Simulated assay, not measured.
Amino acid sequence: MPAPVNTLKHRLQAGETLIGCWLGMAEPYLAEISATAGFDWLLIDGEHAPNDIRSMAAQLAVLDAGGASTVIRLPDDDPARIKQALDIGAQTLLIPMVESAGQAERIYRATRYPPLGFRGVGSALARASKFAAIPDYLTTADDQICVLAQVESRAGLQALDGILANDGIDGVFIGPSDLAADMGHIGRPAEPAVKEAVLDALRRIRAAGRIAGVLSMDPAYITDCRDAGANFLGVGIDVTLFAGAMRAHASKFKQST
């Protein structure tokens, strides 16, 4: 029996445009609720949300049970963190702050078993192999791993062609907020110079035949990114959606009293 098929990877590689949402609440119950919303994918955020490997594993379990396609964003490119995320069952990883072809190569190799890479062999302990219930996991896991490099700085944009030259990088995600900050426009990702840099990068990624991703809560921004070729579209964050709904609900009834 082989490793589970990564349907998200194959759908994105086939050119489908898939809509997703960030999960930053770090809570399995809320992740399970989110899985009922109908998004194509949900991303467990380990960079800016208060997640650790245990909380990510718990959320991954309920999302898998709910049939959701799941992505984990790690806090950095540490091979040890990558190994742990894969062992808990993640098949699609988003790695932030990628700024060179060499860094992209190291990330790719950290996700693959020898001889292609240096992922440690511990699948008998791992949820990924259903605790050794998948006998062919070690020989089939590599094909189902999806690596998305997050480019969010001027250095990353300058290295984009080199990153895309690595066939092991399945896609590149452009981070408008950090890019805006790096370009001197902190808090203003819709600044014309920033937006044009984002759209240009998305066009280049898709022209290279790779998955192109972006996150925005601005419908017009999302439309422009989709038109530029983005097919991995993050359109919301659970924290802001919850906070906005709670504040609006409170305001509605306080104003009526």
Results as ranks from 00 to 15, higher is better:
71 V>G: 01
36 T>L: 11
14 A>F: 11
27 E>Q: 14
22 W>K: 06
46 G>Y: 06
18 L>N: 00
23 L>W: 02
26 A>M: 03
19 I>Y: 14
14 A>H: 11
16 E>L: 10
63 L>D: 04
70 T>L: 02
17 T>D: 04
35 A>S: 15
40 D>L: 00
30 L>M: 13
14 A>G: 14
10 H>S: 15
41 W>A: 00
37 A>F: 14
26 A>T: 07
34 S>P: 07
33 I>N: 13
44 I>N: 02
33 I>F: 14
21 C>F: 00
41 W>Q: 00
67 G>A: 03
66 G>F: 02
35 A>D: 05
9 K>P: 05
24 G>R: 02
29 Y>N: 13
39 F>L: 04
57 A>R: 11
48 H>Q: 11
53 I>N: 12
74 L>N: 10
29 Y>V: 13
21 C>S: 11
13 Q>P: 12
22 W>Y: 11
75 P>K: 06
28 P>D: 08
43 L>T: 09
16 E>S: 14
34 S>L: 10
41 W>K: 00
17 T>I: 06
50 P>S: 08
22 W>H: 07
27 E>R: 09
57 A>L: 10
12 L>T: 04
61 A>P: 08
23 L>R: 01
64 D>E: 15
37 A>L: 14
41 W>F: 05
30 L>T: 11
63 L>K: 06
11 R>T: 09
10 H>Q: 15
43 L>Y: 03
28 P>A: 03
16 E>A: 15
19 I>G: 03
39 F>Y: 14
44 I>P: 01
14 A>N: 12
12 L>P: 07
25 M>D: 10
56 M>R: 12
72 I>G: 06
71 V>H: 03
